[in-house]
């Protein structure tokens, strides 16, 4: 092995820093997307970070008392208070003269789209100096795959069984946050770690409320194979289900990745067991919905 290794003279060029603030031994499922999201975000934010985590998958992944899988301080707060706890933590740190630490509210889609939205809206309105990160796995995965308002049209969950699957589209949280005119917001995907890293770095430097929406596939809840996690995240960007863009002050839209050719949604749906019951008609409806959203985003980008 070693002699073969010496033959090659290529040097390894890594696109991300090697420092790890997340350790092994965490309690995430196999192929978890949320763990990857945390790994990339902490690589960008560095040691001077404090996290506020409400009830979500990450409050379990982190480990039981007295252990923690992360090397940064974490404050486990109540479900609906991620943004307000983070705002309070930041205010407290400023009182004792610490202006360097980045305070991050790290919530899942339930804690952002449904339960935490009033605290988030309040913090955004006050323009508190926090970075709010929502990792979106499209249902309440921690408690056993219940429907949330981030669940897309047609998806199976335990509260929307196959006969009565969800018949409403996903809530457009990015448009809601854009309406708050916050200094910076972005969508990112674990399929594109360099893009996610760059956006987190950018968000770190900005003062005021920053919002990031990270797409994190969940093999257990989506009934997909664990090895397809990255593939699904990449496909969602390529077929415009989850476009990657940034918004500054609710006005300046920048599209980061524009797929060369927009792929049909079929392959993406076929990889996930939660969409197996859909008929051709439903898939056509979902495709139309995706096209409409994509067209709307392109119009917004062009208007800038």
């Amino acid at each position: 092995m070693k002699s073969e290794a010496q033959k090659k003279e290529r040097t390894m060029k890594l696109s991300l820093p090697t420092e790890e603030l997340m350790s092994s031994g965490n309690l995430a499922c196999q192929g978890c997307g949320a763990t990857l999201a945390m790994r990339y975000v902490l690589k960008a934010l560095g040691q001077k970070t404090a996290l506020c985590i409400p009830a979500c998958c990450w409050s379990v992944i982190d480990g039981p008392f007295p252990y923690s899988t992360l090397d940064v301080p974490i404050f486990h707060c109540a479900f609906e208070t991620a943004a307000s706890s983070a705002a309070g933590l930041k205010a407290g740190l400023e009182m004792v003269g610490d202006t360097e630490t980045t305070v991050v509210a790290w919530a899942g889609d339930g804690g952002t789209f449904d339960i935490g939205i009033q605290a988030l809206s309040g913090a955004a309105e006050r323009n508190d100096d926090i970075l709010y990160i929502c990792y979106d796995n499209e249902a309440y995965m921690n408690t056993g795959i219940q429907r949330s308002s981030a669940t897309p049209y047609g998806a199976w969950t335990t509260t929307t069984p196959v006969k009565h699957f969800k018949n409403r589209p996903k809530k457009d949280i990015d448009a809601i946050m854009a309406a708050h005119r916050i200094p910076y917001q972005a969508t990112a995907s674990i399929g594109y770690p360099e893009d996610l890293y760059k956006k987190t770095k950018k968000a770190k430097e900005i003062k005021g409320t920053r919002f990031m929406h990270i797409y994190a596939p969940c093999p257990s809840g989506w009934k997909s194979r664990p090895e397809d996690t990255i593939k699904l995240a990449r496909m969602a960007v390529q077929n415009c289900v989850f476009p990657l863009y940034e918004v500054e002050f609710g006005e300046k839209y920048t599209l980061n990745i524009k797929p060369r050719e927009k792929k049909p949604i079929d392959d993406y749906l076929k990889l996930q067991g939660r969409f197996h019951h859909l008929t051709e008609e439903h898939i056509k409806m979902i495709q139309e919905e995706v096209d409409r959203n994509w067209g709307r985003l392109l119009r917004r980008v062009d208007a800038c």
């Binding site: 290794a5 092994s24 196999q30 192929g31």
Partner: peptide, 24 residues
Amino acid sequence: PDVAIAIENEFPVIDYDYCKGCGI
């Protein structure tokens, strides 16, 4: 996702103590 692959001497090395076998 489990930080189970390290880079040693410019080559990846898997830590089988922590690899969950997801196959990514």
